[in-house]
Amino acid sequence: MTQPTHDEAHGGSLGQRLNWLRAAVLGANDGIVSTAGLVVGVAGATDSRAALLTAGLSGLLAGSMSMAAGEYVSVSTQRDSEKAALAAERRELREQPEAELQELTDLLHDRGLSRDVAREAAVQLTERDALRAHARVELGIDPDDLTNPWHAAWASFLAFTAGALLPLSAIVLPPADWRLTVTVLSVLAALCCTGWSSARLGEAPAGRAMARNVVGGALAMAVTYAAGALLGAAGV
């Protein structure tokens, strides 16, 4: 009985690590595309390094803070829901233990155990830790590993910042004549990498994901550059 428990925990932790990694890749992708669109748009209107740096840093900070705040609110809501579900389950176990035992038996039976084995397993799980058993089998929640909003917020902040630093560096560091070319090429290369990574993590076709990423990023830069060029020509 010890080995399956270890394998289950290992599998769960692996799944969580993959989810965090996938979120980090997507956050970095957002940072690349949004910041690239911003600085390329400004580059269409002016070649001032100070203006490009100001716009890029502003976009980086605004985007990373927005991502962090949004993730914190979202995960806090999820955590509150998990706590409420656990509290309700705890109350039901206290007020109607026999009904909860039967419910756990039915759930285990639905997962493929015979009725007798499901009943015996439900009894043993209940005697060991009734709340944990119902949380995992019925609710799909690990009471010892609830989602942490601060972890999610910091992960989103750092992932977005890491992605945004690429187009920001590419637009302000090279000479003026090379800025746009270096930025476009480096952004498209980075989007190929994030598209490939997200596809591998999701076990999806890499070519299609990379193409979507590159086309979307190229379109965003083309639109913002055109808008910036029009505004610059108009003297706005």
Rank of each mutant, 00 (worst) to 15 (best):
Y72K: 01
G63M: 05
G63Q: 08
R111E: 13
G56S: 11
L101K: 11
S66C: 06
H109N: 08
A84E: 06
A88N: 08
M67A: 05
H109T: 04
A99W: 09
R94H: 02
A99L: 13
L57M: 15
G112E: 04
A84S: 08
S58R: 14
L61Q: 04
V75D: 01
L113Y: 01
L108T: 09
A62G: 15
L93M: 09
V73G: 05
R111W: 07
S81P: 03
Y72S: 00
P97L: 10
K83L: 09
R111P: 08
A62C: 14
L113K: 02
G56W: 04
D106H: 12
A50W: 14
R94M: 01
G70M: 14
A55I: 07
S58T: 12
S48I: 11
A50M: 13
V73A: 13
L107Q: 10
D106Q: 15
G63S: 08
E82D: 10
Y72Q: 00
T46Q: 07
Q78E: 01
L107P: 05
R115T: 09
L57C: 14
S114D: 14
L60Y: 02
S76I: 00
A68L: 14
R91E: 05
A55V: 05
V73L: 15
L61T: 09
G63L: 10
H109P: 03
T105G: 04
L107G: 08
A87H: 08
T46W: 04
S76A: 05
E82S: 01
S114G: 15
L53D: 04
Q102P: 00
S76W: 01
A87F: 07
S48V: 14
S48C: 00
M65Q: 01
E95L: 06
T46L: 00
Q96Y: 00
G63R: 11
T54H: 14
L60A: 03
R115I: 06
K83G: 00
L113E: 00
G70S: 11
L104T: 05
D110T: 05
L93Y: 07
T54G: 15
L113G: 06
A87R: 15
G59F: 09
A99G: 11
A50D: 13
L113N: 00
H109R: 09
R91N: 04
S114H: 09
L86W: 00
D110E: 07
L108Y: 03
R90C: 04
Q78M: 13
Y72D: 00
L113S: 05
E95S: 06
A55F: 07
E100N: 10
L60N: 01
G112D: 11
M67N: 02
A69P: 13
S58A: 15
S66H: 09
E82G: 03
R91G: 00
A87K: 14
D106T: 11
L107H: 10
G63I: 03
L86K: 03
A84V: 09
V75S: 01
G70Y: 15
R49P: 06
